[in-house]
Design a protein around this nucleic acid. Structure first.
Lengths: 190, 190
DNA sequence: TTGACAAAACTGACCGGTCAGTCAGCTTAT
DNA sequence: ATAAGCTGACTGACCGGTCAGTTTTGTCAA
């Protein structure tokens, strides 16, 4: 058990314990217990509670980026790829679940970057990947070539986000396929 | 100055002070000072900090519902109405800004209802209003009549949400008109 | 109108519980 | 033997909430 094992376990415990709670409702003791380590150990691996929180978030963001990048780089046909990207993002949004919301809190830019910057960077990365995917789809003749990609990316991300929220809130599970079809065909009477 | 004046000022101060922060970063003293009242006064009008927070959220949600309802009930033509509804929602999302995200924190269902329930009810209300607007648009021949309204509502809400996020995060200001056009015409090569 | 009194509204210094963070000592690995 | 890794009882800063005291508002008799 390398020392990184404890570190990982603490991050995982944090994720588990924080689910559906506010940061101030989670006590470091709880995290330590859930991780099966002493409280002091937490402070061997993390600056403070805030730092632990930020690093947990960062981990989630990285994992989402990595997964989406992987799908985007695969050799799926454009239509299938869009679907898979949607599924992947939806899965990650639902995993981040409730607590991602609170990470925007300003300031507090500890040693390890501030949350606002982190989120911005993450979304810029995502947008870049998505832009690539959409351009590929356009080349393949799936999309209209005259589109403003920025708007398409916005529409796509938004619909995935909303779908995930609906699922978390109401358990309503709109198939991504339906949304994608709607997005491609349009809602207007042609 | 009726006693409700202090109450209103405290709620407004809370909104102002909380902007872009986590609840645990905001001290009751700060709120009191910003409201120009003594700390004790806060506790004359609100059960505790949590209650103050919930009531502030509730106020925002009510105001959004009211505004959207007003637009939905107006005699604008369907296209214009969609645009106005979008604008209204976007404005409110941006006002709620960062902190609305954290309100889902579970439990804590004090005297005044728990946040999860509140949000669910709010979104159900919104969905109902939007459904009405879309059905009206379909009747007017703006929308395809064969649509699953649930998916359209999801797409619409999502795109407005995402647009607002983009604005908050990057300052990028995609015109709602563009998004609406994209949603109606579809992104696919027909 | 005014003064006297009472009730209501408000205040902020204070209290006490909570919990993040520490560190002296223990345990395990080398 | 000793270093490295780990622990959890302890401490003290902090801040939510209280309440004794002050100010404001309201009432009424003279």
């Amino acid at each position: 058990m390398g020392s990184t094992d404890k570190r990982r376990r603490i991050l995982e415990a944090m994720e588990k314990v924080l689910r559906g709670k506010r940061l101030d409702e989670v006590k470091v003791d709880q995290v330590a217990e859930a991780a099966g380590v002493g409280k002091g150990t937490v402070y061997l691996y993390f600056e403070d509670k805030e730092d632990l929180f930020l690093q947990m978030i960062e981990k989630l963001l990285k994992e989402e980026s990595a997964d989406v990048t992987k799908v985007a780089g695969s050799s799926l046909n454009p239509g299938e790829k869009l679907l898979q990207v949607g599924e992947t993002m939806s899965r990650h949004i639902m995993r981040k679940g409730q607590f991602i919301r609170m990470m925007r809190a300003e300031g507090r830019g500890g040693r390890n970057g501030d949350p606002k910057k982190m989120m911005c960077a993450h979304h810029q990365r995502l947008d870049q990947i998505l832009t690539g995917v959409f351009e590929e789809a356009a080349k393949a003749g799936i999309l209209r070539p005259d589109l403003k990609t920025e708007a398409v990316v916005c529409l796509f991300k938004g619909m995935i986000l909303q779908r995930s929220m609906n699922f978390l809130n109401f358990g309503s599970d709109i198939p991504i396929q339906d949304l994608l079809a709607l997005m491609l065909e349009g809602a207007g009477k042609n």
